[in-house]
Design a protein around this nucleic acid. Structure first.
Length: 297
DNA sequence: TACGCGTGGAT
DNA sequence: TATCCAAGCGT
């Protein structure tokens, strides 16, 4: 595949970059004084959690652990506790493990190398590219759900991107990347922001879009989504909810809790035991002697 | 590739 | 009220 910009994509660069310069949100991890650790913490927290809910937890976190070594010196359970109700608490465990790896393998500094980032716990394709691009100004295709949606509409002409990320998404994002490194980095954050603020999933604000006159989907008449149905996940009564209840009890406790305290938070015993076993298997809960449980030490 | 993994705001 | 969906990752 050619690495040169598609003609259509290159025509989007200038309006999208201009739009971003005028409309970007002020976010703490975008402040010029925020380092790579700040970017990394924000990226972990933002994996499947909205900005508005991340902001308060992020502030507390960075105040308490301003450097990777500060977090690495804590018990993993403290990271889980500080994760509060952001959801998917395994991310907290992975961020803690990543901080320890950074201390042990990278002298306490977040590495700027994409492959080294990818090797860290909890860092996948997206997060490695995001840190390398946002924190270090490198040229990478940063492909999240926002970017996939913007490109699906603007370039492919479909209402929604594929349900799960595809190699084609990645290739398209690479082909659309500006050649110049700093411009590519601004393009990455700008396309994400456009997807987050204007080219939204449910009700896109096409009237406010800087590329509406070039958007393949708009030019096709904004056809409705016609792909396979997206599986809406229920939550009430699931193992996930049971795990959340159990972990909430442990987060609220100062030290260890009794089995009876855990039993009180979920009625279905079979499901409760399965959820607790899962939390222990994931390293989110330490089983202790005398039938007691605690966040991992 | 498909699935499991939290939580809560918006529509 | 029920459904959608939010800067994914690991297995």
């Amino acid at each position: 595949m050619s690495d040169s910009p598609l003609p259509l994509a290159s025509a989007l660069h200038e309006p999208v970059l201009r739009w971003y310069a005028a409309n970007a949100r002020t976010l703490p991890w975008r402040d010029p004084s925020a380092g790579a650790w700040a970017v990394m913490v924000s990226e972990f927290m933002l994996q499947q959690t909205p900005v508005a809910r991340v902001l308060p937890a992020y502030e507390v976190w960075m105040e308490r652990w301003p450097k990777p070594a500060d977090l690495a010196g804590e018990a993993p359970g403290e990271a889980v506790r500080a994760w509060d109700r952001l959801g998917y608490p395994r991310r907290a465990l992975r961020l803690h493990a990543a901080a320890r790896a950074i201390v042990e393998q990278h002298g306490g500094e977040v590495p700027d190398d994409h492959a080294a980032l990818l090797a860290l716990p909890g860092v996948g394709t997206y997060t490695a590219a995001a840190i390398a691009s946002f924190a270090f100004g490198q040229r990478h295709a940063v492909v999240d759900t926002n970017v996939r949606r913007v490109f699906a509409r603007a370039l492919t002409g479909t209402a929604q991107p594929s349900i799960s990320p595809t190699a084609a998404d990645q290739r398209l994002a690479v082909s659309a990347l500006p050649q110049d490194e700093p411009t590519a980095a601004r393009w990455a954050v700008a396309t994400m922001e456009l997807g987050a603020l204007v080219c939204t999933a449910r009700t896109p604000r096409c009237a406010d879009c800087p590329i509406r006159s070039q958007c393949a989907w708009v030019l096709a008449g904004s056809p409705q989504y016609s792909g396979p149905p997206r599986k809406g996940q229920t939550y009430e009564g699931t193992d996930r909810q049971a795990r959340g209840r159990l972990l909430a009890v442990l987060r609220a406790a100062t030290g260890a809790v009794s089995k009876a305290d855990l039993d009180a938070c979920w009625p279905d015993q079979l499901q409760r035991e399965r959820a607790l076993d899962g939390l222990v298997a994931d390293g989110l809960v330490d089983p202790l002697p005398r039938n007691r449980y605690a966040l991992p030490a």
